[in-house]
Nucleic acid binder design. Sequence first.
DNA 1: ATGGATGCAAACAGTTTGCAACGAC
DNA 2: GTCGTTGCAAACTGTTTGCATCCAT
Lengths: 142, 142
Amino acid sequence: MAKSTESQKTGEKLTRQRDAVLQVIRERADHPTANEIFQAARLRLPTISYATVYNSLRFLKEAGLVHEIKFGDSASRYDRETDRHDHAICTGCGKLVDFDLPQAAELMVVAARKSKFKPESVHLTLRGLCPDCRKTPSSTRV
Amino acid sequence: MAKSTESQKTGEKLTRQRDAVLQVIRERADHPTANEIFQAARLRLPTISYATVYNSLRFLKEAGLVHEIKFGDSASRYDRETDRHDHAICTGCGKLVDFDLPQAAELMVVAARKSKFKPESVHLTLRGLCPDCRKTPSSTRV
DNA sequence: ATGGATGCAAACAGTTTGCAACGAC
DNA sequence: GTCGTTGCAAACTGTTTGCATCCAT
């Protein structure tokens, strides 16, 4: 993620709680929800509140340090990967995986032509079974 | 407006309120939210309740008669188009437009290879400015 | 001393649900 | 009468906000 030379946050303050939230997101390979982030952040900073987690998430989003992923599902998930990328969602276990489609740029052009929109970004979502779930007969499902 | 209750699909009951909800969705070119559907349905059936609209939407979804679109935004939107298709969202005015990307099938394969998922469906979302908004100078926007 | 950040709880929006009354067969 | 549907309100979930307090400058 070479790009962001924005020298960490846009001149704003990365307080202890904001940093805790950021670290939580960065150290996880998955895409935690605000609630999961809250739980994990509390281990680092026992007094941090839910409100502060949300405030911090907003701050970090605006600073471009994290990325929010909203699917229909339920809660937003947060992603340490801030560059453009796509997502695959497992219909078996709900797992969310990042991947990048190199042809995204041309896709955007095609989609723009089709829709007559002036393109800004494209995002592709694949639904299917993750490697684990395609193995497993039925499921360990919710 | 063909009053034809068409093939009631799953053999379930298309009650007066469910039909009203379905008609509302079918007669609109846009993608109304549950609330908008509720407002419109009340014009047809003044006593219909919010709960019934939601119940009906669930029923219609399960019957495959309407399609639910959930973006991060806020409320779900409902779409009379039930075939696979993609969406463009205007970052200016929030307008939601359907379009179809013919190469979706191959995209799915590529995405599946990248993510190692067993593909089931793909959906592409374009963000950008709709024809109206790209015309308008700056904005009438929030 | 000041201004922004925190933490709590209460407010919100969207959606779902428990349950009694209702309607179709 | 039976069984599913309706309608109302209350419950729920995820998120946001008002406000007093706290903290780093």
